[in-house]
Nucleic acid binder design. Sequence first.
RNA 1: GCCCUUGUGGCGGAAUUGGUAGACGCGCUGGAUUCAAAAUCCAGUUCCUUCGGGAGUGGGGGUUCGAUUCCCCCCGGGGGUACCA
Length: 944
Amino acid sequence: MEYNPQAIERKWRDYWEKNEIYRVSNESDKPKYYVLDMFPYPSGAGLHVGHPLGYIASDIYARYKRMKGFNVLHPMGYDAFGLPAEQYAIDTGIHPSVSTDDNIKKYRSQMDNLGFSFDWSREFRTSDPDFYKWTQWIFQLLFDSYYDTGADKAKPIAELIAHFETSGSEGVKAANQNDQTFTAVEWKAMSAVEQSDILTNFRMAFRKVAYVNWCEVLGTVLANDEVKDGVSERGGHPVEKRPMLQWSLRITAYAQRLLDDLQTIDWPDAMKTIQTNWIGRSEGAQLFFDLAGHDEKLEIYTTRPDTIFGATYMVLAPEHPLVDKITTKEQRAAVTEYLEYTNSRSERERMTEVKEVTGCFLGAYAKNPFTNNEIPIFIGEYVLMDYGTGAIMAVPSDDDRDYAFATKFKLPIIDVIDKSKYPAADRHDKLGIMINSGFLNGMEVPAAITLMLEKIEERGIGQRQVNFRLRDATFSRQRYWGEPIPILYDADGVPQKVDLSQLPIELPPLDNFQPTADGRSPLARKTDWVNQDGMTRETDTMPGYAGSSWYYLRYMDARNHDAFVSKSAVNYWQQVDLYIGGPEHGTGHLMYSRFWHKFLYDLGYVPTAEPFKKLINQGMIQGVIEFLYLSKSEDKKKRFVSADQVKNIEAYARIPVFIDFVSDYGSKDSYLSPQGIKQFVAWRTDYVDAVFVTEDGEFKVGAMPVTFKFQTHSEVGKMSKRYFNVVNPDDVVDKYGADCFRMYEMFLGPLEHSKPWDTQGIDGVSKFLRKMWGLFFDKNENFSVSDAAATPEEMKVLHTVIKKINSDIDRFSFNTCISAFMVATNDLKKMGTNKRAVLVPLVQLLSPFAPHVAEELWQRLGHEGSVTTEEFPQHDEQFLREDSITYPISINGKKRMTADFAADMSKEDLEKAALALPDLQKWIEGKEIRKVIVVVGRMINVVV
RNA sequence: GCCCUUGUGGCGGAAUUGGUAGACGCGCUGGAUUCAAAAUCCAGUUCCUUCGGGAGUGGGGGUUCGAUUCCCCCCGGGGGUACCA
């Protein structure tokens, strides 16, 4: 019988579903293992061949672990809230829940096509009220908690309130914004509003006015990781900084722990570095400068207290609260003008035009506490309000930006570090000998920093401080399609959490999804929903990352109505053992999940400090983009030139063409035939009268000779709708089968690498599967397996592949697994093997990779039940033993010949035997043998 | 700019601790089969060569009996981040 993947695959998928083969229990004597994929956002485009790469790898690993005796949790769901569905709703009027539902159905059918072993009984989407009830519950937990910096963990806010009631603010160690002090009596005398305002400074979920990223086009605020290069990550719309009252999460309280615990997890170095940089820890000093003529002190942060003798001026952020107060009359007009200028600049302009220094003198002066000189105070764009204190001491001699600023405004520059000993050092490197710096003179920089920190603390003008670049996470979104923030405001505007019995706060139906111009959520229009017995609802919704910050916990106990996850379930599954997903989530999802997880850990809801023990970032599968060169010049519009005739690329626009029209697609010589040109102009009808130029001349559509070849330009790039190069896995599966598709995706190369998709290459894997299938059938295509004993050669082939597959899966090297299968199959075919003793383990070995065909062969071999529950084969060294070894023999490290020697020969005997080889004589003749290196079992090297 | 990562035949890639560079597959070339094509099968395929051999893992240098692998410098690709004081 011929290998017919379509028939086999349907049969076994039905079998798996009917028998619930992949359903996993939370109760088992087996050790547990949790394999998770980053769940998809179901976009309208469906899956392309790149998406399943990680799912295939995790599926193979999950199947392997099952066969190795683990109870494996391997779930899937959907990240269903988010901007694209809402933008789609605005454009089409189709409710996001409807389009999301359609998209999910499509995703599900595409995934079902691939034979994954997900336990679908645990499936959910983040937009299910049953799920987001618990997202809201966690938010309330954050609202109800504060961070105790003494105990270094989050605690219930009730404990803080109890402390205020007995001791006031005395002795409180907590992560907060401002250090108000009050007694217990004063606390009790405060109004509810006053108390609430104070507590806001401590809550893990809190409201504050902050300079946030406001995106006018999207009508919402965005988190820092949702802004790339000064524009919104979704849609690329301009973003500006605006002070707005917003919900935020106090992730900064966890900065140090998020940094430290990176040491404890098995993640790629790249991912750890991304997070380390994003957290951006720096050590330095908080320092107070006296202001001339004012009582206030100016607080700054510096990592270079050693350079303070070189601080010749100061710079504040334009938004700094002291600016208005200390600006002198004479400078008022200039300052106002400068502030108008900075306000007019978008975030993007500010970021892209960093070369140019701008600033304005305030007329005010501060006193350098060590030189006692009065130094001028400026405002400047290069100082950011939301880092440090929004103010700096400027040391032009040792900071590039300060230097540029000082040069432009003709401010004094005092050299304080002699770098002549370190010629390679840059201005900002912490290297050199202190000069012009009073008591620091002659010291090396690191020692000077230490001494200066001591002096500062001794004099009481500041203290050591660790600063983080990490910002608190903006949590409000002025959008419809997200989880409503479960907060009610009373008549005084004091926020109260909604009672658990009232959760979930479901999204009310809405017809108009258009964002409002005044920065309020579309939900604000729904007044009957907003007003609740004298209370008003919060109308902002949660950001896209809310649900994904904890979804992996929900899979442990997905249908629980009484808790986000039961104690017993989370104690059993603990954490995700293996997490596979793209590397684009380093500063978003993976940061927030770690934060939420640690928070839940502090409050005793989860037993581990980290959510994801091991992380693998799969690479992207790229597509080939086919372009046509179109002349840019006005008079030659609609003139396409064959790629081989193009000399000056600048003169041509590149028009992407649908890849199905292109012959020899993806190759250097890809071209459009007359047929391809016809398809192209039928698709892009505006080019129906265009001219196509090749070396043979100019041709109009329809007037080309049969041999006409118009070369296209091929380039590797993203697989995307806009390049018309998307390959749908469904089409590949239709033609080759899911087993073949799965193995081919793995065969393409290492999981972590990005690599281009090449449909042509799949033939190799397809041939392999047929060859492998052929081992079980005789010449007349009848199933025919022999019970005869296997030969030592056959056993050697079998155990070689068993050993290789085991070790390669363990190190996630799936591409070499496929090669090993091919090698084994080729060898067995040459030997004409059809022995049961060889084929049974081979089928077991194959089943994680090609589960459908493995089930079919397993059944034909006479077994009942599924091969997926069988034990994974283990190799036996005795079958791998060799009597003789082929040694490579090198002269001076260059291989010249090989020779077979007995495997048990000693080093000395090998040396003697090798030197006696007749072939060797011409190489050593007349030369002195200096040394012979023999590595038993490996190689022999003769040095002459 | 800084940080991470990557560079091996025409292509995807292999070489797990420094030990036969190019496994496996695609493509290509030749052959068999066929009226022919597709499919299939067999053989060859890093480059140069005077057929002895020589060169070769982005480039240059180093350590070593031996380097794709370790060290230093430089160049290219991909990603992250960016007035962070």
